[in-house]
Design a protein around this nucleic acid. Sequence first.
DNA 1: GCGGTCTTTTAGATCGATCTAATTGCAGTT
DNA 2: AACTGCAATTAGATCGATCTAAAAGACCGC
Lengths: 343, 343
Amino acid sequence: MKKSFSLAPVSLLAVAREAGVSRATASLVLRESPLVATETRERVQEVMKRLGYIYNRGAANLRQNRTHTIGLVLPNIANPFFSKLTAGVDEINDTNDVVCFIANSNESVDRQARQLQRLREHNVDGVIICPAVGSCQTLLDDLERLKLPFVQALRQVSSDESDYVAADYATGIEKAVTHLVRTGRRRIMFVGNTNVHSAAQARYEGFMRAVALHHLPQTLIVSGGAENTYDEAVFDTLLNSSDPPDSAICYNDIMALNVINRLQAHGIAVGKEFAVIGMDDLPQASASYPALTTIGTGPRDIGRAAANLLQARLENPERSREHIILSPQLIIRASCGENADLG
Amino acid sequence: MKKSFSLAPVSLLAVAREAGVSRATASLVLRESPLVATETRERVQEVMKRLGYIYNRGAANLRQNRTHTIGLVLPNIANPFFSKLTAGVDEINDTNDVVCFIANSNESVDRQARQLQRLREHNVDGVIICPAVGSCQTLLDDLERLKLPFVQALRQVSSDESDYVAADYATGIEKAVTHLVRTGRRRIMFVGNTNVHSAAQARYEGFMRAVALHHLPQTLIVSGGAENTYDEAVFDTLLNSSDPPDSAICYNDIMALNVINRLQAHGIAVGKEFAVIGMDDLPQASASYPALTTIGTGPRDIGRAAANLLQARLENPERSREHIILSPQLIIRASCGENADLG
DNA sequence: GCGGTCTTTTAGATCGATCTAATTGCAGTT
DNA sequence: AACTGCAATTAGATCGATCTAAAAGACCGC
């Protein structure tokens, strides 16, 4: 006993016919044009509701040149840091009536290129991208060729003239070193990557800046590898030397937690004999023991800023390029001896 | 004397003209139809490459009824658990040449409804949804009205006949209780939500099943609230009673870490006097001190399974509904006295 | 009744692909 | 020369909206 449901979805034409107006008028009603007489508008709206009309953006997109769609290309969407960024982007999108394609480059430039191509085919208005490790000028060329407006987030390929949002890693690291110095540390290590991408470079630069500022030893560097590993042989050698380090600044929280484990295996009391500071303020930083001092880089805010910046760019393609650099925040917890502050 | 650069992006028509064939033939080349002569195909492909042709799926979608697009609606995309699920979905999508809109319902049914409407307007082929707390039959009605094929993940609205992928929470909890009993625990608490949604219910049911199986006390329940809180007054009362609990199974890892903090504040040695088990195996579970025993629910696998199931449904709308229930895994760490196994 | 102004409505082209139903060309038969 | 069969190609309609340019209708003053 089925009711006479039309199998085909209701189009604007169907609405127009039912309401006794033309497609054009119905379209004007959709877009709330003041041209339409009140009486007509209400009649059409009533019909839309009654027939269960659903706006087909795909059709509209064909005619216009905006799809209200953006792409978000990240190196690792399973990483909580990036998912906070995603949440920030989504927040802004929701208020702008924009939806977001998510794509995982998995730190592979090939996959990244494929994802961009795919997004382009789906006619996204623009993309927010955190370039995969190994991205180079080719990425920018691709974006240019695809005529894709974009904002880089967190990392950037070359220091060229493009929109860019990130935390001020260098200053964050510098603040952290200064905090350690104030609490009496002098032999401070840097553990982690120094040049895989712009964000790594910035951290290293911040460290070296602080080293110069406070006249600290310059050789306490333990280089990092893929997947948050570091050179454990060098690490151990430094620890066993006659004048061992008394603290470490790590590339990120994951690495810092690994470092803490290794220190504990060496029988070193973290937070007293030895101070450790991470970066990112992941949830596991506060859950660890001892709780990890870290440099919070505000991924959610970065996401929000990137989404806003992309919208601004889309609204005015001629506006001048903008770099938004957010200040990170030092979050002091037990791993650097929170009570040892010497003023 | 302008060169014939078209500012407008290259369309299939432009390609066809340049190659001296019709739109139809060019279209056949695109879709690698065997109807086209080899010589023609190669010529057209060469022109596509030369002009930098980009396929416009939007236009194709208008004619066909698949967009190669799905929606993923989650209650909290910033949560690492859900972002692992997202990564699993993305993995499958990448191999299927499908892209994914991500939407955050933020545990709000209204926002969830708005997101679904928006996804529908963008003509997604289907959605994977983890219903927001408070979702009811209305959600299913909406999906029906929008004619959106869907797969529910992790939680389900009513135990109706729809595609569904989740972990077997009940069995997971039961396994955990059994492990505690084997290591000599008898007074086991359950801390957390018992009925906000199907996943909470399943956990509670698993607990009660184990309680019955091992003839354990039935009254050691501490109910949970929003945002991973729990009834601390009841918790303290139980701890201070004459016959206090000796272990706790918690709704999830976050709650378990909160519980551990509170136990430590009570001066209780977690992992010795008192065992704690969480659920989800978040990164912070292994980073905590003591490291948290937990029930791993494999979010990435759930994401993969959901994406595969949705594709199967789209390929054959008539196939019978399927429930995929994955087995969780007990990951034993220090918080439940890993060395105390009595066999 | 006629031109002018203003409001409201609409016909028809358009976006860029796909799909159907031919049509063309060519080889082989009769 | 006419016919059949097959491979390759194509004209034109179509999806569902938007946009332009023009038309229709109402109202006014003279």
